[in-house]
Each structure stands twice: as C-alpha cells, then as structure tokens.
Write a protein that binds this DNA or RNA. Structure first.
Lengths: 174, 174
DNA sequence: ATCGAATAGTACGACAGCTAACTATCAGCC
DNA sequence: GGCTGATAGTTAGCTGTCGTACTATTCGAT
C-alpha cells in the first residue's frame, strides 16, 4: 500500500511523516495553499521530539526542564546570580503565578532562596544557593554537550544555514 | 548599558534575545561549546511564540489546538474519515489516556462519534460527524492561510532553505 | 484448543501550567 | 501629604496531560 504510486521524482529525498501529511491534505483538499504547512509541521514535530531528548539530561541532575530554565537564567545573569520573580517570568515567558510555583519547588529543594529586597518591599531577590550554583553548572555542561550531539549530524554549513533561517523567521514573527 | 561594547561586526545582523543569552553564557562560562545552543534556543522561542499565533485561529472555530489536531487527522485520512484511538494517539504523539480525554470532549461537542468496530471488540472507530466535517474544513482553511501569513515575511528562497534545513535536522534526530 | 503475552481503551491520582481575584507596596500628580 | 493607578507576588480553582493500574479482547505458539 505504501509503495504504490511513488514516482521517481518523489524518491529523490526521503519522504518523512510531514510529507505524508501534506500528501493527504493535497488529495483531500486540493484547494488549500499548503506552501507553509511543511515548515510549521516540521517545527512542531521537532519540538515534540526534542522535548524528551533534552529532558533526559535534566533528569540526570534531578531537575525538570522548567526548573533548569530558572537556574540557568540566574546563573548566566552573572554575579550576584540574583533576579526578581517578575524578571524571571518575563524572560522565560511564564505567568507570574507559574513562577511562584517553580520558585516554591526550587526553594524546597534548596537550589534557590528568596532574599528581601531593601529597595522594594513588594518584591525580593531570587538567589542561587551554593548548591544551586553547583547543580546548574554541572547540568548546563551536559546540556550543551547534548545539544551539540543532537546537531552533530549536520555539517557546519547546514547548521549555519539553519540558524540563519530560524533567526529570520523569529524576526518576522515577533 | 545595552549599547556599550557593541562592535561594528555585531551590528551587521540585528541581535535578538537568543544572541543575548549566548553572550551571557559566553561571559560566565567561556569553557562551554555554545555552537548548538543558538539553534535550539531559537527553535524553543519559535515554538513559544507560534503557539498563541496559531491557537487564535482555532479559537475562532470553537476549538483548542489539540482538538483541531484530532479532527484534522480524521479529515485528511480521507473517506470514511475514521481512525481508531490508538492510531490517533500514535500519529499525534499523545498518550492513549490523553486521547480518551480529547475524544470525550469532541464527542460531547458532537464533532466525532464512537462506532463499534465489528472486527475488534476491544476497539472502535472514531468518525467525524457531519458537523465535525464542516468545522474542520472551515478551520483548516483559515489555519493554512494563517500559516502562509506568518511565513509571508520570508522570500520563497528563504522558505525553501528553512524547510530543507528542518527536514535535515528532523531526519538526524529521529 | 488452550494458555500466556500483547494490545485496546479507560479510570484515577498527580502535576504543572493558566486566569482571575486579592493584598501589599510603590510612583506620580495635584 | 494623600489619592489614583500601576506593579509584585500569592492564592484558589480549572484544565489538559501523564503514568499506572485495571478489564476486555485478540494473537500466537505449541
């Protein structure tokens, strides 16, 4: 069934799951303009496949992805490794309520602590603890290596091209 | 503060949020290989920004994205617009428990119905109702147009390049 | 023909996110 | 100095997903 109707032209590049979806749509709704659907389909599929591939590394360090993101934002902000919850929520594109939750978990694990902000009594500083610092340093090392591994099948040229294309799209959408 | 230290070379292409994150990491952890982080950072950011941009169209048709995905899978499968829950869960990369839930909602809304499978009494056929067919046809028309609009800032050449790069990465990861 | 393993769907409890409502505090303006 | 509106964080309730455990059915090897 699957080999039927595969023309010579279609055999050139391996057809993936997204191609099959586009074929189905073309057959059922030939009126639709499908020119963009392939890109978004592949983006979605990538995001779905990448999630567990990245999560696995965080799990090895006792973290969930969301928790790593918070620790990483603090770590890369530089000394004194401190940000306020609103700033964290904004950069991580998370609701403030969600940030409250994440911070509760991280604080219970002893990875961050809430310190009074002397200049604004509505807020406070979220600071990496010594242990949080160690954990995120170890995790980000593995994470960067894992990302490199996942991209290792692409040539440097292909990587550069992909990065440039993603940058263009990101700029177009914002 | 932000304008300090921006060299001529850096001004060539506009620096985005991901560039700033990479700068921070480079400063704090010069030992890390950041060559892959830009690609994954932009993929993640795209996925985050795209979600509400696509969801908005589904909302106009009374659907959530997950519900649309189910209806779309049924619609593009062609006559008789019928699949079993396991097959749906697999193609949508969703747990079977999650699929049970989605089907419950869709059935309550009268968009699909569960029909007995005469050949396997463990299972059944999920079928589009007439209303489900109408709704998904209208939704996918708008959805395809929305996707085209979101990509309209890219030239045909840029689209082709992006699609090819995504295809390569997807193939590398699977 | 039968028995064990695999498969299909569901119920249940946990979980992490969201929105909306709420309290406390700050900033600006008169 | 004292309102008014904006901002910071939390709480409460809802939602959609997951993993696990369970029942029913089918498949396959002998």
């Amino acid at each position: 069934m699957t080999k039927q109707g595969v023309t010579v032209e279609e055999r050139r590049k391996p057809r993936d799951a997204v191609d099959q979806i586009l074929d189905q749509w073309h057959k059922e709704r030939p009126d639709l303009d499908l020119s963009a659907m392939g890109v978004f389909g592949r983006l979605g599929q990538l995001s779905l496949l990448l999630t567990p591939a990245l999560e696995e590394v965080f799990t090895r360090h006792g973290l969930r992805r969301g928790e790593f993101d918070v620790l990483a934002a603090l770590r890369r902000s530089g000394p004194p490794y401190t940000l306020i919850p609103s700033a964290l929520a904004k950069t991580l594109m998370l609701s403030r309520a969600g940030m409250t939750n994440r911070l509760d978990r991280l604080e219970a694990d002893g990875l961050v602590e809430r310190r009074l902000d002397p200049t604004d009594r509505r807020s406070f500083h979220v600071a990496l603890t010594a242990r949080g610092h160690r954990v995120v340093d170890a995790a980000v090392t593995d994470h960067a290596a894992n990302e490199s591994r996942l991209l290792s099948a692409l040539t440097p040229d292909e990587r550069e091209t992909l990065d440039h294309a993603l940058r263009t799209l990101l700029q177009a959408i914002e």
